[in-house]
Design a binder for these strands. Structure first.
Lengths: 245, 245
DNA sequence: CGTCTGGTTGATACGACTCAAATTTGGTGG
DNA sequence: CCACCAAATTTGAGTCGTATCAACCAGACG
């Protein structure tokens, strides 16, 4: 099985067999975190860069009174904070949503990678810029879109991201996050998320049950979400080469 | 005059005279953009990395119907998208708020810098991570804080950022952004921002008039904003060395 | 088969939005 | 230096989207 990280970076550039080998080495699972447990907490000193090998996670921040904002979801193949060990302490936490297999990459291994594998380095740069871009889109989402658009947008984004690492099956995919998670990610309450999901279902935009999401008509969902995929920066060399061969 | 960029990076690390010289070269103003004009627009192909030398700017995204979200403010010394030329097209726009002096740095100059000046490279990494961290805090801000807390938080952040590049004067600073800008940055309407600013004034937390902001009691403002400065990652080597001599 | 988390529903409240107009400020040219 | 204009701020009245609180239900799991 091709590790999700390689699939992901392949979106950007065509990796050599040596590159793939290096990624396989790096993607070795070093930890399995049970569902709903934290991988690392705000205030701790980050030592490793993480790769999500299997399962879903999220990055979140909290306020003293318990209000919680999920600022990112992680799906397999996501790479976490290239160079984060430059910082003294974490300003947020990372938690597992499902049971999560993670590869911890030491600073040393990262340094080796960036000096010896320029193509991977470049691809990691790309992935870093895309992650930041997704954060910006989320700000637009939370700040400007209505509840309906907001949730539609989140679902469309996650579907596309999963598709890019081959974790979709036609028009559907596993979707393990709860309505409370969606609420914390969109700045809404769980009750309102529930009602809005019902609207989306009523309008035939989504089928969401038993932790499985189906999108019968992606184009319609995109329109409802005012979704412009440019921020995912998916059209790159890798894709073009794929198209040719 | 020490360029703001050097002041900013000095927060993180102690720069050598050669480092400073390199920064001075790079911080040469290559363009002056009139107030309220765009520096680069969504969809364009990014060729340069930018340094804000003088004046304020912002990064923003828009929806087809005109809704606009400011996702970041730039103040002097801010560095913009280390390595952005990796991407094919901009997913957002960058605009000038005041008249803005910018230094455009070519890919070539950046590559030179990163190969020859490891200390600067490290510091730019730090600045990159901090910028991303600020984005996360903004998501928490927009998604979870009340209007009152949200605006208080924004003002506190900008004040601290200006202070770190020595652009404050005691407890006050220039503050050229309009209430509409604040609205677009916080996900509120200009009318509501206006009323909330009046509340903040009434409570004695801020004095804001004639494009000048005064914070009589920063600690009180911080408390009102649920402001935790850890996300700015200001306590670093540079600061510690400063403390010793 | 009971427990528990996640999902659903209903009633009510309020924070923030909308629209519209008035007022103030700051910049520009006569 | 004043008149003028556009931009920014302020005010008021009415509305609406989303929150809150409180039950209740269902299906997953031990």
């Amino acid at each position: 099985m091709v590790p999700a990280l390689a699939l992901r970076l392949d979106t950007f550039t065509r990796l050599s067999p040596e590159d793939r080998a290096a990624l396989a080495t790096i993607s070795k699972v070093s930890r399995v975190i049970p569902a709903r447990r934290d991988l690392i907490r705000e205030g701790e000193n980050p030592q490793y860069v993480h790769v999500m090998v299997d399962g879903w996670g999220c990055r979140y921040k909290t306020l003293p009174d318990g209000r919680r904002q999920i600022v990112a979801f992680f799906v397999p193949g996501d790479f976490c904070d290239l160079n984060v060990y430059v910082l003294k302490e974490m300003d947020h936490s990372i938690g597992a949503i499902t049971r999560l297999s993670v590869a911890d990459i030491s600073r040393e291994d990262m340094d080796n990678l960036t000096t010896n594998r320029p193509r991977i380095t470049q691809a990691l740069w790309w992935e870093n810029l895309v992650t930041t871009s997704i954060q910006r889109e989320w700000m637009l989402n939370i700040g400007q879109r209505t509840a309906y658009e907001r949730i539609a947008h989140l679902l469309a984004e996650l579907f596309l991201r999963l598709r890019s690492v081959k974790l979709t099956n036609g028009d559907s995919c596993d979707f393990p996050i709860t309505q409370t998670d969606i609420a914390d990610a969109t700045g809404l309450t769980a009750v309102h998320v529930n009602r809005t999901l019902q609207e989306l279902r009523r309008d035939g935009l989504i089928i969401l049950e038993h932790k499985r999401l189906t999108i019968p008509d992606l184009q319609r969902l995109r329109e409802a979400a005012l979704f412009n995929p440019n921020y995912l920066h998916l059209t790159h060399e890798g894709q073009q080469l794929d198209a040719n061969g």
